[in-house]
């Protein structure tokens, strides 16, 4: 229990850091008038996920339950959860926005994110699963000197802190935009919710929350894709023509732009994105769900399939936003 409290306090400190990082972005987004539809939808989802957390808390009795859901998660469920973990705010909002503003450059990012997955599967997934340990530090210290634990813990924390701050700033801005809340209030609301999910429910709850998130994203994304595409008579050619006609970059949308101007930058981006994916602690720990006959290898296929599905959608999404954005004043306001 004390351990959990310490975790909670640490998380609270991080949310403070996110609150500090927020104001940099504040100038660009105006606080919206209170949007009741969005608030009600949000509340429904919070209530639902809280219900799951409560149910999961009743089932979490041992260390194994807390960290790896006691091995009671099937390959398919785990695959969905990994997909949910990875389809974060950065993927959904960041990549769509980037496709919108930069065109092909964003597609390079998607490719690089995606290419990390086969590497994880081929070289890491099975080894992690077979060990039947709880955390990443357990694994490194199993093979190496036990003192390597400190190093592993530190590196995990560094990665997670940076990752978490970005996610929380994203979530805070989103809630601020939807609810018309103050940014600081929004950030703390998100922080408190996150802490409750993790500290009370453990891995069982987070897994189920991620599964739901993955399903919602896949469904919502596909719906938006179909609706957006229908505006162009389901013709990619028409879509690309219109996008190039209205975008200030014109035909250069289709080629790599200023983003990767020299070989060193390109190589460094490729390395960072690909192996960065393979090093995300919250993804790796999902592979530790314990020795199950038909577990992880299957999971690999699933999550890659889901990832591809999501990423492919961004291609029409971004350009799709574009001409639609021009004709719809409400979207334009965001720019």
């Amino acid at each position: 229990m004390i351990k959990r409290l310490t975790t909670a306090l640490a998380l609270l400190a991080f949310s403070g850091m996110a609150a500090a990082a927020g104001p940099a972005l504040q100038g660009e987004i105006q606080t919206q008038p209170t949007n009741w539809h969005a608030i009600i939808m949000f509340m429904i989802f919070v209530t639902m996920t809280m219900g799951i957390t409560y149910w999961a808390a009743g089932r979490t009795k041992s260390t194994a339950d807390f960290y790896t859901a006691g091995g009671g998660i099937t390959g398919f469920q785990n695959g969905l959860a990994i997909a949910g973990d990875y389809m974060s705010a950065a993927t959904l909002l960041g990549l769509t926005a980037m496709t919108f503003s930069r065109g092909y450059d964003a597609y390079i990012y998607m490719m690089a994110f995606f290419a990390g997955w086969p590497i994880i599967l081929f070289l890491m997934a099975e080894r992690l699963r077979n060990l039947g340990r709880f955390t990443f530090s357990d694994i490194t210290s199993y093979r190496l000197d036990p003192s390597v634990r400190t190093m592993a813990a530190l590196s995990s924390l560094v990665v997670v802190v940076f990752y978490l701050i970005a996610q929380m700033v994203g979530a805070g801005q989103l809630i601020k935009l939807l609810f018309g809340l103050e940014y600081n209030v929004a950030i703390f609301a998100v922080g408190v919710l996150m802490m409750v999910y993790v500290t009370v429910g453990g891995m069982v709850a987070t897994t189920w929350v991620q599964i739901i998130k993955a399903c919602l994203l896949l469904f919502g994304g596909t719906l938006v894709l179909i609706l957006g595409f229908s505006q162009f008579g389901f013709s990619l050619t028409t879509l690309l023509e219109k996008a190039q006609a209205v975008h200030k970059q014109g035909t250069s949308l289709m080629a790599p732009g200023s983003l990767l101007s020299d070989p060193v930058t390109a190589l460094s981006l490729g390395l960072g994105l690909m192996f960065g994916t393979a090093g995300l602690p919250h993804i790796l720990m999902r592979l530790l769900h314990r020795r199950q006959r038909q577990g992880s290898p299957q999971v690999g296929a699933l999550r890659v399939r889901f990832r591809r599905f999501l990423l492919q959608r961004h291609l029409p999404h971004g350009p799709g936003c574009h001409p639609a954005g021009r004709s719809e004043p409400r979207v334009l306001r965001g720019r």
Partner: peptide, 25 residues
């Protein structure tokens, strides 16, 4: 054609990597 070489190449890579994954699984 509106299809650029870059887009096509990435599309092929997505499909190909996915097939490799399937093969491994």
């Amino acid at each position: 054609s509106m299809w650029a070489i870059g887009y096509t190449a990435e599309l092929v890579m997505f499909v190909f990597f996915w097939l490799l994954t399937l093969l491994y699984v």
